[in-house]
């Protein structure tokens, strides 16, 4: 009797697995990287991963700024001109090669959508049409397509911008 239940239980388990998918379990932290992120005592949020790069919003004594980390060399990358003392970053995303950064920031009473190119250190402001307030941005790996969550007339839209 007991032995006849074994194939039944096995097939039941297989069926459950097929229906629910797989349980990958606990994932392994990347040693060497996490201590760097924890080192400064700052608060980090809004992670954006590229191949070799991590962008995030770092809070240093109440002031947020955009920060990029080179995951291969395990060090911070300078982004001259991207952070302003009179601006609050809201969302950030990076292309796969780490050369192009898309960001949304609040400055005075304006919410701006910008593209930052590391090669030149130049910031380019993008205007939304029709007008709206950008809230969250995603840049594709090639750095040529942007998806932007925009507030318009009390609802949330997503705009696709091809640069």
């Amino acid at each position: 009797m007991k032995s006849s239940l074994v194939p039944f239980r096995f097939s039941l388990a297989a069926l459950l697995l097929a229906l629910t998918g797989c349980f990958a379990g606990e994932i392994r932290p990347i040693l060497g990287l996490n201590p760097i992120l924890a080192q400064s005592g700052n608060s980090f949020r809004e992670p954006g991963l590229a191949m070799q790069w991590l962008v995030s919003l770092a809070n240093d004594q109440g002031k947020e700024r955009i920060e990029m980390i080179d995951l291969q060399r395990l060090r911070r990358v300078a982004l001259p001109g991207i952070n302003r003392i009179d601006a609050q970053p809201i969302s950030v995303s990076v292309s796969a090669d780490g050369q192009t950064v898309a960001l949304i920031r609040q400055r005075a009473d304006q919410t701006e959508l910008l593209i930052y190119r590391r090669s030149s250190g130049a910031l380019q402001r993008l205007e939304l049409s029709p007008k709206g307030i950008p809230r969250r941005v995603s840049l594709d790996g090639t750095g040529r397509v942007l998806a932007v969550q925009v507030s318009r007339g009390g609802s949330w839209d997503v705009d696709i911008i091809r640069l």
Partner: peptide, 20 residues
């Protein structure tokens, strides 16, 4: 740049958290 608005249900439009 060329801007396209993603089509959606205009009666209850709520499109958030885009990720390409």
């Amino acid at each position: 740049p060329r801007i396209d608005r993603l089509p959606g249900d205009f009666s209850a439009r709520s499109q958030k958290d885009p990720a390409l």
